[in-house]
Design a protein around this nucleic acid. Structure first.
Lengths: 187, 187
DNA sequence: ATAATATCTAATCAATTGCTTAGTTATAGG
DNA sequence: CCTATAACTAAGCAATTGATTAGATATTAT
């Protein structure tokens, strides 16, 4: 009986996601979201409950995007550890968009909100991190059979990824390339 | 002839610095600063001009602190590359304070403010990064004479440091240890 | 068509933001 | 002592924050 929404939730959330990605959580105001999503505040609140609600959906949207363009490619590759290296390069270009170095939205969020991060958000982020880590481990198995070595290497790669995310905001591409090459010289 | 300030600028700035370090720039309000610094808003603005002014002084304070506890120790060490490894471990415990993982204030700032970072602030941060990088290079020279190798290693170490800063907020100490050990296994 | 209901627009809410101003108080040089 | 000066207190500024409300507008089953 009721009226239909004249926007598609997934579409407006993707726009919101890019805004959060560019500006961070605190700096992004509800008015900016309104403008970017192309919908009224009422629609925003009735669909997503709160600014945080919009953010959580944006995080999920980002994860989906990263899964499709990065993790799925990694999983389906047959190149072993080299596939992880490719993931690193893909990750850097993924974090650049329209000549902007935005880093990784998940890393940005952890870094911005720190220990005060809402548990729901933190869980979403940690789940994805574990997901990536497990994908790394699958590829590492082709190199070494020793489980302890693999665990250590996985930790090494995860911290390295965080470094890339932040560094893409302040260092030159050549320095990032140096880094990636060095990382995989050691594997 | 005039009245004396009844606070010491360096003292209140150090308090402000810890607040910014814990909460980030945007999340820290002038009212919070007032409370933490123990001075009135008028005093704050007449001494430092603006919230950003307080922040810039806080950044300088942080740099001084990091210089004394981290860089000076590195410079005076005679252990070569091992001294850099020690710097990494010191850096992690430096970013932990009162059981809080706050990361590095400079890294946090770059990550939070991104490309919109005020030039003055950005310069302060970049200067310190170069300073650390040069200290690394000095120690790397004891290992290899090849300048190109050293440059690449320096880039590698700088990105790794950023990784440690962010990762200290989301990973276990053992994972950070794994990372540091892996970095220096082949240096 | 009509009634029911969810979505829309647009105005508004109290609270908080960074910052300023008016008026008082302390400190020194003459 | 007195006057000049700057630091103090505390109230207030306009603008913005996240969120809500009232009333108009579509949509669809009956």
């Amino acid at each position: 009986m009721p009226r239909k929404k004249n926007f598609i939730e997934e579409e407006v959330i993707e726009r919101a996601m890019y805004l959060f990605w560019r500006n961070g959580y605190e700096t992004t105001s509800v008015r900016m979201l309104e403008k970017e999503m192309g919908i009224n505040q009422f629609s925003m609140y009735s669909s997503f409950g709160s600014k945080e609600g919009v953010f959580i959906e944006s995080i999920k949207c980002y994860k989906k995007k990263a899964q499709v363009t990065l993790v799925d490619k990694l999983k389906s590759s047959s190149k072993g550890v080299l596939a992880i290296k490719q993931y690193f390069y893909d990750f850097v270009s993924f974090s650049k968009d329209l000549n902007q170095n935005k880093g990784c939205l998940l890393t940005n969020t952890i870094n911005e909100l720190g220990e005060n991060t809402d548990t729901k958000i933190r869980n979403e982020i940690m789940k994805f991190a574990l997901n990536v880590r497990n994908s790394f481990i699958e590829k590492l198995k082709t190199n070494s059979p020793d489980e302890q070595t693999i665990e250590k290497q996985a930790n090494y790669l995860m911290v390295s990824l965080q470094g890339l995310s932040v560094s893409s905001k302040m260092f030159e591409q050549s320095q990032l390339d140096d880094f990636i090459e060095s990382v995989f010289e050691r594997l």
